[in-house]
Structures are given as C-alpha cells and as structure tokens.
C-alpha cells in the first residue's frame, strides 16, 4: 500500500528533521534514493519552486514530492505525514507549558529564551539581507553591492516607519516590492 508507505516515510522526516523546511532535504534525498518516487533532478526543481511559491518551504516540498509519487492524494498523505509528529509534540509541550506557566522557574527560563529567539530571527533576516545585497560579480569574481536592492530595502523600511503608511498590512509591502522588482527588472 503506497499511501501507507508514503505517510510513514514523511512521518519519519517530520519526526527527525529539526530546524525548519530545508532540514527536510537530506531525508528527501534519502527517500528518492531508496524508493525512486522522484528523481534528484526533480528534487532540485522542487527546491526552486518551493522557495518561490507561498507557504512553508517544508510543506511545499512534501506536497510536491507526494504529488510526483502518485497524485493529489499522495500530496495530501505526504504532507499530513510530515506534520503529524510535530503537531503531536507541540500539543504535548503546550499542555505541559500551560500547567507550569506561572512557575517562576519556567518564567526564568523563558526570560532567557526570548532574547535568544529574537537574535535567531534577526540573524535569519540579516543573512538573507547580506546574501541579497552582496551579489557575486561573475566577471570580476568580487562581491559587489546591489544598489537597486539596497534602495528598495531602505525605501520599504522608511514606509514601514512613516506615520501614514506604517499601518499598512505586510502583504501590501510585499506587493509593492514585487511590482518594483518587475518594473525595474530586478535580479538580472
């Protein structure tokens, strides 16, 4: 029964991949190796498409992989397999947390966690930023600043701070950026 096997393989991926979507990659390569449900070159396409469509990258990958294995049913089964372990684990953690949320020691731990969590998110944002702003010049093999990206970044940041536009929904800023990208032929 292929669906059972598909569910089981993605369940294992969801259980052992710690740290988000791209952490599932080694598991997907392994599945491709052992079962041949999809090829490695299809996996490369999957990564590109998963990163440039809405939604969590890991979910996009499992949907794509499941679809290639069978069809829409495969997509649903693979994705449900992937999320089941973390849903169960997170619910269990939530239960424990809600029981001890007023415990001073638990609060002390979270007091330390929050700045670290803030730093991890900041670091993710900054590394995407530096990858985007510093493009490798193919001819001279040096890193050069992408001035168009920098200008857009500064412009967006000012809009997010400006009194009249700061209450706009994040989606609006994403759409503005997409429009400017097309208008100025960014990224080429």
């Amino acid at each position: 029964m292929i669906y059972l096997q598909l569910f089981y393989e993605f369940f294992k991926t969801g259980l052992f991949a710690v740290g988000g979507g791209l952490a599932t990659l080694p598991f997907l390569y392994d599945i491709s190796d052992r079962f041949g449900w999809f090829t490695e070159s299809q996996l490369a396409d999957m990564i590109a498409i998963s990163e440039s469509t809405p939604g969590a990258i890991g979910i996009n990958m499992s949907t794509y992989a499941g679809f290639l294995t069978t069809n829409v049913t495969g997509a649903v089964v693979a994705t449900l397999g992937l999320i089941t372990p973390s849903v169960v684990i997170v619910i269990l953690i939530s239960r424990v947390l809600s029981r001890f949320q007023n415990d001073q020691r638990v609060q002390a731990v979270f007091y330390g966690l929050r700045p670290a969590s803030t730093a991890l998110i900041a670091s993710a944002g900054l590394s995407v930023m530096s990858m985007d702003l510093l493009q490798l010049d193919q001819e001279q093999l040096i890193e050069r600043v992408d001035w168009m990206s920098l200008a857009l970044a500064v412009g967006l940041f000012i809009l997010m701070k400006y009194r009249l536009t700061k209450h706009l929904h994040p989606i609006v800023f994403i759409l503005i950026a997409a429009g400017i990208g097309i208008l100025f032929g960014m990224g080429s």
């Binding site: 900054l126 857009l152 970044a153 967006l156 994040p170 800023f173 994403i174 997409a178 990224g187």
Partner: peptide, 13 residues
C-alpha cells in the same frame, strides 16, 4: 523579477 523584489521585502519585514 517579482521575486527579486519580494526577497527584499521579506528581509526588511
């Protein structure tokens, strides 16, 4: 092109 722009908005956001 659109994604080159979107990428910028993502890290600024």
């Amino acid at each position: 092109h659109a994604f080159a722009g979107i990428r910028v908005s993502v890290y600024v956001l």
